[in-house]
């Protein structure tokens, strides 16, 4: 094993231990250091040089970016998520011949779909979906996101909210919480048009508030 690879591996171990401890500050620091080191690997996208260490380099780089994506979810940073995801994507699309597929692939792709849904970028959602093979749609992580989109389009909002109980992966919770907020706004918009009148109690139930106070706060806010 050559020196650079050695260094990256060691650093990555440190990152992982910090990651397990949920010390996100340290993680971010190590990560930015790691990313700089990764630029020195010639076998990574976009150059794909066939070096003797290519397989190890690609595998570890992919692993690092996967962790980076998950980290960005945990730190609730959507911009970082997008950046890291785009860095990770070439590994999924263009390295299938070189290294074996990652077990994390579908959870992360599903996460990305969810992000697009939350940000209401439906066109991109469908563009990403087209890239997936038929078999991927059977995967619980992908299926979850696809079904969410459907319920969302139909207007079956309570199904969207109940999806939170059936998350296939714990990182999904963050986006589902965000989605819940979007859904509440949607419901409010629909109710405005659909009901002539609505009692406070019913409104509370429909908009999923537990107290009258929360409801009145929300009403004044909107």
């Amino acid at each position: 094993m050559d020196l650079k690879l050695e260094e990256v591996t060691q650093l990555f171990e440190r990152f992982k231990s910090a990651f397990v401890r949920n010390d996100f500050g340290a993680c971010t620091d190590v990560l930015s250091h790691l990313k700089v080191l990764l630029t020195k690997f010639p076998s990574l996208p976009p150059s794909y040089q066939e070096t003797p260490n290519a397989v190890q380099e690609l595998t570890i780089a992919r692993d690092i970016y996967e962790h980076a994506v998950v980290l960005s979810v945990k730190t609730e940073d959507q911009d970082a998520f997008e950046r890291d995801f785009f860095q990770l994507k070439p590994f999924y699309t263009d390295t299938c011949g070189i290294i074996p597929p990652s077990p994390q692939e579908y959870p992360i792709l599903g996460l990305n779909l969810l992000r697009l849904l939350v940000q209401n970028r439906i066109a991109e959602f469908h563009t990403e979906l087209e890239l997936l093979p038929q078999s991927a749609l059977e995967n619980p992580c992908i299926k979850h996101a696809v079904e969410l989109e459907q319920s969302f389009m139909e207007g079956a909002y309570n199904r969207v909210l109940s999806a939170r109980q059936t998350v296939p992966h714990d990182t999904y919770v963050y986006f589902l919480d965000l989605l819940a907020k979007t859904v509440r706004d949607e419901i409010a918009g629909c109710s405005e048009k659909a009901y002539d009148y609505l009692s406070i109690n019913d409104a509370k139930k429909i908009l999923m508030f537990s107290t009258d106070q929360e409801l009145s706060e929300y009403i004044t806010e909107v």
Binding site: E154, G155, A156, I187, C190, K193, A194, Y195, D196, L198
Partner: peptide
Amino acid sequence: SPNPVADAESIVAKAIRDGAIDATIDH
């Protein structure tokens, strides 16, 4: 679905908002 009435209600509400049907719901 497990809760068809609630589903139907929100689906109808969305259809009303999108202008697909012209109706009101009496909750």
